[in-house]
Design a protein around this nucleic acid. Structure first.
Lengths: 261, 261
DNA sequence: CGATTCCTTGAGACAGCTCAATTTCGGTGG
DNA sequence: CCACCGAAATTGAGCTGTCTCAAGGAATCG
């Protein structure tokens, strides 16, 4: 598995993020009820509003490199970002997928141990670290929500461990697509009579980095699933799932799910 | 990777845990300063003491099966336990290692999604779920500590994802041994002039389930490390690390760590 | 419409898996 | 204390899924 393809070292071109004052009131925020602020009352929201600001990143831009000092924590308002680690010889593993409402950063820690990168255009709702940390102490609603979200992430990480450790390449692909399909479905998504459309923001290489595979293997398995009619491709990045159950049947979970007589 | 070895289904022999009243006052508890109660003051400790009870499991006993209702959450006081998931065809993946001071259970959720099993003899400090949950709300010291511990576990899970997804068999073994050695070292351990002694409570099969390998591959790699002098074996379960740096050099992390001229 | 980036496909190599004996360890009873 | 037993570990030989290396081919963007 020693990949000898060391990606050219990309110099961190100073991210020139656009700063915006919150043109969106929290009350009208699309992630209002799912983000770290979900359980805040009006008065708590006001306190949050005082320390928040928006920041946007273009597709492909780094949000942070491992080891960077991060002066803020944030919620993803829009777009998709990835969290990844890289071994010194270039082997890369994604360890998290950040979708709208997900939280970035760790209270009490100044530097990220991970690379964080915008995959599509991303808008963050940022809170300066220090004020946020004191807010955590004084506002149990935020702390509780953050605990819950962290535990959800932990569960997700453990599900990934199963995928990475024990699933075949084909099962890995099916699992990834299922996870994304499910998350998109909860967001409320373009589904035309059961056909789920995944506007996949990930390149084959990014998928490979998630699944612990090479991009060639990903490509082969995607092609195989397409040829067998489990998925359809529309262009390079859009995947259509005609019947989610067919896809789930390929994930390796629940093998007897439909078999119980 | 489709393992066709479905382990015989073990009927959950009703765990007959021994119940003990806390013969240990919190003040004298060995995990007092590292567990979920670490930041509690004397008065908060009293409240915890009211709802706590001890429970012991023999080596090999199940603490919970996936899907079980768990009436309690707990801290590991003594011993080692594992958290694992199993696919319906028998493929198994460990997703967590529980050492003294680690926390078991999730507030707000009644059923575990994982199997939890005692590896050595285990003593738990249990709290009934409901009282603990209300205590979480009323005692920020516990909630804060639990958040911190959860975030640590999340980091650990992500480190595992890298190991599972991108490391070779040999690197996986070295990484596992390093992690255990480090944790044992912090506990305060038998180390005779730099030689770290790992009293490994894990079978080769358990190690394989952690690392996403087969037990034969684990055995081969352990033998290889032994033959090359990186580790020494004393009996079947005890591993001696003469020089931790040699082991770390095999983990795949930090390849240039010693190379910087 | 050219260029670049991403994706697909092929052929061969190899790490780790599967199947199959043995061997060693750790306990246990004579 | 020693011989024996079962569980766990080791080791071997062949197989296979995924990786590696290498060409081409399709999108997307200026």
């Amino acid at each position: 598995m020693p990949l000898d393809r060391r990606p050219a070292i990309v110099t961190a071109q100073a991210p020139i993020p656009k700063l915006k004052n919150p043109e969106v009131e929290c009350a009208g925020c699309p992630i209002r009820h799912r983000a770290v602020c979900a359980r805040c009352g009006p008065e708590e929201l006001t306190r949050l509003e005082e320390i928040k600001y928006y920041r946007s990143y273009e597709a492909g831009q780094p949000i942070a490199w491992a080891g960077d000092e991060m002066g803020f924590v944030a919620s993803v308002v829009k777009g998709v970002a990835t969290i990844s680690t890289t071994l010194s010889d270039g082997r890369k593993q994604m360890v998290g997928l950040l979708l709208p409402s997900d939280f970035i950063g760790r209270p009490g820690r100044a530097t990220t141990p991970y690379d964080v990168q915008a995959v599509s255009e991303v808008t963050l709702c940022c809170f300066r670290r220090k004020p946020f940390e004191s807010l955590l102490v004084s506002t149990p609603a935020v702390a509780e929500r953050l605990l819950d979200m962290s535990l959800d992430e932990l569960d997700a990480a453990r599900e990934w461990m199963l995928i990475l450790g024990r699933k075949t390449a084909r099962e890995k692909i099916a699992s990834l697509l299922t996870i994304i399909a499910r998350r998109e479905a909860t967001v409320g998504l373009q589904t035309i009579k059961g056909r789920i459309v995944i506007d996949l923001p990930l390149t084959r290489e990014a998928m490979a980095d998630y699944l612990g595979l090479t991009l060639e293997t990903v490509s082969r398995q995607v092609s195989a699933l397409k040829n067998e009619g489990v998925i359809e491709l529309d262009g390079k990045r859009r995947i259509i799932v005609p019947d989610i159950r067919l896809l789930i049947a390929e994930t390796g979970d629940d093998m007897d799910g439909g078999m119980i007589a």
